[in-house]
Design a protein around this nucleic acid. Structure first.
Lengths: 349, 349
DNA sequence: ACCATGCAGGAGAGCGCTCTCCGGGCGTCT
DNA sequence: AGACGCCCGGAGAGCGCTCTCCTGCATGGT
């Protein structure tokens, strides 16, 4: 342990107490607002605090309260070699930032700080567990983009205050989460395309090893079946733009007459848009396109992408609320909150 | 201070010491690898650690070492009302995630955790200062997207270990930073356009109250002057896509004959591409377009955007190195590292 | 007048760790 | 053989805070 570059010594409770002519305990009470303190004395103490420039030392406080007022925001991604520069790509996704923004709206006013962590290897997961046991953080918000992620179950078992973004793959894991109704969202896309009079509808699905990918496809198919279209041509992509391009090309080859496409996320929809343009199809006149997420890609696309909006920020905020709840009372039952999606109508459909 | 939901008591050094039949001090030495300890005893201690499942308590350690092994990653943005939901937009920029990714490649192996903070109001800045004084964090990495940001100066004065992404607006602020040579980057764009044989070159500049915006414009103008084009038509945008669209429209109206455009960032270039397409200009045949940053927008654009690459991840990693350096020795002189940009040639020019 | 009651402030233990200081055993130099 | 270091382990102080317990005083009921 390398030793401390000593910064000038900070004033302590003791200093303030001396300055104010009261005991340490009293100062503590004033600072924390616990118990009643004579207003007269309160004023004296507050002045002493101002004079000395006192700020409570967090570590000392944590040592006794066993609260850190920090939570981890964990991104759980598929394992990869330690030196793979892929790291940047993970966080390059704006999705990530939106979650952070949503969390912050709740955490900040409560004085809780988010610490960023990445669970991308067995070792990283162990370190995360270590962080919790070290009492470095009070709880965990997990965003998992890994199929069959072992993390949720790990946390659930460990009885650690944790909340997931998106339901866990294994339904019986005892952990709180926020999610959207994927199927209802897909249904909105289907209904919209049908209302537009489209009759030869196809879909670019997400990876079928992800719950979101599966559920969106299922929801879309069921809805289309309800509208009388039993066989929806489908090619699965990988949630990336190039994946969407590839899928769209295949779809176009297999179903040249299709007049509408539902892509399981905006990035793939954007890819589809590019391919359709190359192929000389007009959007939305010849082919209507609907995406999913309402990410920044939807606004960057031309024509502007009609898409199923996922209220990410609200979901993240709720995630924070749930987390704080179980922080303050570990015996809270696990809860889940399912958000409603909305169809955002723009130009592409 | 709400009281602790007590989790089961964790094993302490004391427990390990008892288990191993040695003193607390010895266990501490083994755990931290300070001083030599008899290999025999070392083994006994390690076993005791394994048996008890001991993990050092971070707060206790911090209390005495005065190190938290945490740094703040601060995004300094223009002030705004406390309840403005703009929050999400800040972090929605992939730029943000790339920085985080870069930082992490350095911080993670060193066991340092990034804590996220937002400096978006006077109050937030004070809280940040408080966090430092509370010894909640050891240092600060700042990404400022505010013109005339008071934060760098504040930190510089406070003698706090700090590193900026991008040079401070006021040159004499004593604080380390990483940056690119904005002018050299702009020059690369200019040289490329000239090499392409373009003779009527225009530019969409960034906001002129940001250092980057100013420097890129200056660099571009100087380079073009060097190539014999003295008057470069210029409209300033605001670094957003719509800003780019607006600027491009103005440019097209004023200079219908222009055959090349340099946009001060990719987002604006993307906007320009859209407008050019609407206007029936072919890119790159009629008008060549070069962006700046090499962000994800460059790859999302069609045609693929030729752009000046800023090595964000490398810069962020260096930022972390500089920060760790001054953490370990506060007397380090302030340093700055200027990175080289590279022209990434794709389709648009 | 007395004791029960309530409330505000002080004393002091103790959270879990690191680190300085000490002491004892051993090797080495004279 | 004695003196002198050196190396390794133990003892114990103390980091800054919170919180329990205690004490002293005012209040009110009988």
């Amino acid at each position: 342990m390398s030793q401390i570059p000593r910064r000038p010594r900070m004033p302590t409770l003791e200093d303030v107490a001396r300055q104010a002519g009261v005991s340490r305990a009293t100062v503590s009470r004033v600072v924390n607002g616990t118990r009643n303190v004579d207003p007269e004395i309160q004023k004296v103490v507050q002045e002493a605090v101002a004079v000395t420039g006192y700020v409570p030392n967090r570590a000392a406080r944590t040592l006794v309260t066993r609260r850190t007022d920090a939570v981890a925001l964990v991104f759980s991604v598929p394992d990869r070699p330690e030196d793979d520069p892929f790291l940047g790509r993970v966080f390059g996704d704006p999705f990530f930032g939106r979650i952070l923004g949503g969390l912050l709206t709740v955490l900040r006013p409560r004085g809780v700080h988010p610490v960023l962590m990445l669970a991308d290897s067995q070792r990283a997961r162990e370190e995360l567990a270590g962080s919790l046991r070290q009492e470095h953080i009070d709880g965990v918000a997990v965003v998992s983009i890994t199929p069959d992620d072992p993390l949720p179950e790990l946390l659930g078992r460990a009885q650690v205050p944790a909340v997931l973004f998106g339901r866990p793959a294994a339904a019986e894991v005892p952990v709180s989460f926020v999610d959207i109704s994927q199927q209802a969202g897909a249904r909105q896309a289907a209904d919209h395309l049908v209302a537009l009079g489209r009759t030869r509808v196809a879909t670019i699905a997400g990876p079928q090893d992800s719950p979101a990918g599966r559920d969106r496809l299922r929801g879309f198919r069921e809805a289309m079946a309800g509208h009388g279209q039993r066989d929806v041509p489908c090619v699965a992509g990988d949630f990336t733009q190039v994946g969407g391009e590839k899928a769209m090309r295949e779809l176009l080859a297999a179903e040249p007459g299709c007049d509408a496409v539902f892509a399981a996320n905006d990035l793939m929809a954007q890819g589809a848009l590019h391919v359709l343009r190359e192929a000389g199809r007009r959007v939305p006149e010849d082919v209507a396109v609907v995406g999913f997420d309402d990410s920044s890609a939807a606004l960057a696309a031309r024509p502007l992408l009609t898409t199923v909006r996922q209220p990410i920020e609200d979901m993240a905020a709720e995630m924070a609320e749930l987390l704080l709840l179980s922080l303050n009372d570990p015996d809270q039952p696990t809860r889940s909150v399912i958000f409603r999606t909305t169809l955002v109508r723009r130009q592409s459909a």
